[in-house]
């Protein structure tokens, strides 16, 4: 498998959220605004990257019988490190993401990539896989969060996670009173996810149909 393919697989073809439906719990729970999406996305990328590197490095040292407990120890350690650092340096984001930071330990994407990829491949490939999967997760989270935030509040904004009073980007309320509060609630998360997945499936089926038609013509 080419290096570019490993990286791009996580972004589109095997997107962990929109194609493989992994990591649904944080995706649905914290995707109320773009700040949460960026914070959770960066936390998952760092944990995924570090755990993939370490697991790829120690794969020959780990007895097969206890590989899963050891992977969990590695992942939990990195999650706790991120948890402590976020608590210290980004307390507002830490409060906003709440229980979903420690829950990264049981995020299927992390353990799934450790078991399915990092434990069988080189360090370099594992880094590319972690970056692709992590960015794929973050992009999906940003897409869902952006839609929920815009329809639910009428505005889009991104603030500095180290200083929430500093706003990097804000559209102001563009929808006025025509906002749908339901999109800020859990049912809104399911609705947005459902529509995005439906649209992606329609796009994929349409492309496959065109491909078959083109082949028939030839």
């Amino acid at each position: 498998m080419k290096k570019a393919q490993i990286f791009l697989a996580g972004l589109f073809k095997e997107n962990p959220v929109l194609v493989m439906f992994l990591g649904m719990c944080p995706t649905l729970a914290v995707s109320t605004n773009l700040d949460n999406a960026i914070g959770m996305g960066i936390a998952v990328i760092i944990v995924l990257l570090l755990s993939n590197i370490v697991i790829s490095l120690i794969k020959k040292l780990v007895p097969n019988e206890i590989r899963i407990p050891i992977y969990i120890v590695v992942i939990a350690t990195f999650v706790k490190i991120i948890d402590l650092l976020m608590h210290a340096f980004t307390p507002d984001l830490y409060a906003s993401l709440g229980i979903f930071i420690p829950l990264i330990v049981v995020n299927c994407i992390i353990l799934g990539r450790a078991e399915a990829f990092a434990s069988k491949n080189s360090v370099w490939d594992s880094i590319l896989d972690a970056l692709g999967m992590g960015l794929g997760f973050t992009l999906a989270l940003l897409l869902i969060s952006g839609i929920r935030q815009f329809i639910g509040t009428g505005a889009l904004f991104i603030s500095n996670p180290f200083n929430p009073t500093q706003i990097f980007f804000s559209t102001g309320n563009l929808l006025g009173q025509y906002v749908f509060g339901i999109f800020q609630t859990p049912p809104g998360a399911f609705l947005v996810l459902g529509f995005i997945v439906a649209a992606l499936n329609a796009f994929r089926l349409n492309r496959e149909k065109k491909k078959v038609l083109t082949q028939d013509k030839k």
């Binding site: 490190i81 650092l85 210290a88």
Partner: peptide, 21 residues
Amino acid sequence: VLALFASVATAGLAFVYHIAN
């Protein structure tokens, strides 16, 4: 083996806790 990995993890966590706390 499991205890060794857990010990290394504990040492790493202790170091970060020392900085963050």
